[in-house]
Amino acid sequence: MKVTRENIIWESHQKHVPTIDDEGGKLWGCFRSCFLQSAAPYTEGVAYKILKNDLGIDLREAAGHTSCGAIGYHGDVTTIETQMVVAARNFAVAHEELGVDNLFSFCVTSFANYTEMIHLWEEEPELREYTAKILKETTGREFWIPRVSGNRPSVVHASDVFYANRHKLAQKAKYSLKGIKAVDHIGCHYGKIFPGEAMGGVEFPQVLVGLLEAFGAEIVDYPERRHCCGMGFRQCAFPENRDYTASSTYKKLASLKQAHPDCNLILTNCPGCTVFLDAEQGTIKEVLEEEFNVSVLDYAQLTGLMLGYDPFKDCGLNAKAVEVEPLLDKIGIPYDKSKTAEQRRRPF
């Protein structure tokens, strides 16, 4: 099995995300994620610290921007028209109030949602007119479309910004993933809706692999890598549907363990995958008495660990179903061993 996963058409899947050395690459506006703020707030916390402190980015966000509402869209309580105008409002707020041109979101579904609306405006001029009109009528704001990637109408995801600056981050790393097997799991909404907007495409995506490689990890592959984690919006939201989620996670991890029993790290860029690929391992352990012990970290958590941020206080690895300490030991990241696992996680 080849592990480099190079593909001759990767070149056609490169999007141009400004690095901090490029013009405008140090000034970004960002959109928060409702899923992260509810189920894993610390990931945005450590992402913020890295972007500001380690990359020196002037990161701006408006108090008045809202969720893109896409969980409601894929959860069937809003219309496509709603999504367009809410997206246009958030763009207008960022552009007018913060003076930023480059925008990213912390959530892959927001990224896909904004991308979908931008595509609709490009393809259907009357929807663009509709959006501008309703935006003006309801908010008085002016319609504006960001052009982040290669000067075409687009926004990017936070993990794209990490990817673009991966070599800078790797230079600052205190630890290395040398000898650590790892595999990526991109969020479905990062690549499957608009493969052309995914760094490296959707089949052999590069966005997380590039980051892992920069930190020295050995990339592996497994047959169910591209299968969805099973988050599934209403499937994970309502406990009675969650067998969908658990079975998807089981399928993936069983496949990974069969291929690489010694791979204990999955890197993610989607809030849903980060939470459920981990949490459902707890369910599987309880119900099937099977343990996979694969740590699921998101790009910011892993980068935080590599840069020397505290695994618990900064990276928020307190509430993982899978204990992270074995992975930390393997990498050689220190933590307070005078405390018990519980004490490390429960400061009060």
């Binding site: 593909n7 001759i8 058409i9 495409g201 089949e203 052999f204």
Partner: peptide
Amino acid sequence: TLKEEYGYGI
């Protein structure tokens, strides 16, 4: 190779 999901060349 253009049918990436089939992994030709990989």
